[in-house]
Design a protein around this nucleic acid. Structure first.
Lengths: 195, 195
DNA sequence: TAATTTTGGACCGTTTTAGTCTAATAGTCG
DNA sequence: CGACTATTAGACTAAAACGGTCCAAAATTA
C-alpha cells in the first residue's frame, strides 16, 4: 500500500511536465498518460478529472515551496537571517513555478473560485510565516515594529507584486546574491524594519 | 496591390509564432487567425491549408538565412573571411530556427516527400555557396584543394551533423567568437584547407 | 457607382477529446 | 494454491474541437 502515493506522485510529475510544456488547454489526458507510460484508466483511478489533476499539481508545488521555506527557516536562529531566507526561497520558488503561475493567471482564471481561494490561502500562510519571524524579532529586541501583522502583509504583498525573480540569475555566486539581497531588503523594508 | 504580400507575411509571422510555441499538431487554424487578429477566411484566402502555411514558414525562414549569408559574404573579399562568415551565420541561423527544425524532424516527418526534398534542396544550395567560396580561394592561390565540390559537401555535412550552435553563446564577445571560430575551422578543416 | 478584393463568422463532416466501462492482469494474504 | 482486491489496457461514447467551406457584408479600388 506504500506504492499508492508513489504512483499518484508519478502522475502529478508527468502532468506537471506536459502542463508546463503545452499549457492547460492544449494538454490532453492521453498526453499525461503517455508521459508517464501508462494508460488513461490509471489516471482516472486516482483522479477524477483533468481539472482535479491540475489543482493537485499546483497545490503540491506550493506545498513544497512552503515546507522548503519552513525547513530552511527552522535551521536559522537570527530573525534577520530567517527573513532573508524567506525572500530568497520565495523568489526561487516563483521562478521555478513561473509556468504554473502563468497558466493560473491566463487559462485557469475561468475557475475563479479555485484561483481566488488558493490565492487567499497561500497569502494567509505566507503572512503567518512572516508574522512569526517578525514576532520573534520583536521579542528579542532585534526588530522594532509597531504592528508585525500589518508589516507582514506589506512584505508579502511587495514580494508578490514585484517581478523579483528577474533580479537573481542562476549564475550568481553566493556572495553576489548576499549583497543583492541585503540591498534589496534595505530598499524594500527601510523604515519599516530597523536593525 | 502592394499590401497583398504584407498580409501574407503577417500570416506567416503569426503562424511561425504559434507553431514554435505549440508545435505543429497542437496549433489550430484559429490559433493562427487569433494571433494575427483576423478571421480564418483571411488565412484561407491566401493559403490553401495548414500544411501549406507551415511549408511556407519553413521556406521563408531558410530563404532568409540563405540571403543573409549571401549578403554578408558579398561584403567580404577574402575567401577565408567568407568561409568564416558562412559558418557563423549558419550557426546563428540554426539556433534561431531550432524550433522549426525540431518540428520538421519530429512532427512533420510524416510528410517525408516535403522534408526530404527540402533537405536536399537546401543542402544543394549551401554546397553551391561553399563551392563558390572555395573556387575563388583556389583561383587566387589561397586554398590548395584537389576537389572543391567534395570539400564543400564535407563542410556542409559537418556543420549539419554537429550541434554547433551550442558552441557559441549569445554573451560571447566578438573577440572570443573570433578565437573560437578560428579554432573550430582548424579542427573542422585541418588537412582539407591549407592556408 | 459599379466592380472587385477582403473579411467575419456560421456552418459542415470528420477527428479528437474527456471521461466511462469492462474484462483481463498483477499483487496480496491466509 | 486460491480467493480476493488493486490496478491496468484499451474499446467505447457523447460532446467538443478541428480543418476547411461558404456566403453575405464590408472595405477598397476604379
Amino acid at each position: 500500500m506504500i506504492k499508492k502515493e508513489e504512483i499518484q506522485s508519478k502522475i502529478l510529475q508527468a502532468a506537471q511536465e506536459v502542463f508546463t510544456k503545452y499549457g492547460y488547454g492544449k494538454t490532453t489526458m492521453d498526453d499525461i498518460a503517455k508521459a508517464m507510460g501508462k494508460g488513461k484508466s490509471t489516471i482516472y483511478y486516482y483522479f477524477t478529472s483533468k481539472e482535479d489533476i491540475f489543482k493537485a499539481v499546483v497545490e503540491k508545488e506550493f506545498l513544497l515551496m512552503k515546507t522548503t521555506i519552513l525547513t530552511e527557516i527552522a535551521a536559522k536562529e537570527d530573525p534577520r537571517e530567517q527573513l532573508k531566507i524567506y525572500v530568497v526561497e520565495r523568489m526561487h520558488g516563483l521562478k521555478r513555478l513561473k509556468d504554473l503561475y502563468h497558466i493560473l493567471r491566463t487559462e485557469f482564471i475561468a475557475h475563479h473560485e479555485f484561483v481566488e481561494q488558493f490565492r487567499q490561502q497561500t497569502d494567509q500562510e505566507e503572512i503567518n510565516i512572516v508574522t512569526g519571524i517578525l514576532n520573534t524579532g520583536v521579542e528579542r529586541n532585534i526588530f522594532y515594529l509597531e504592528d508585525t501583522f500589518l508589516t507582514s502583509i506589506a512584505i508579502v504583498t511587495a514580494l508578490k507584486g514585484m517581478e523579483i525573480p528577474l533580479l537573481i540569475t542562476e549564475t550568481d555566486g553566493d556572495s553576489l546574491l548576499e549583497q543583492r539581497l541585503d540591498r534589496l531588503l534595505d530598499v524594500l523594508f527601510f523604515g519599516i524594519i530597523k536593525r
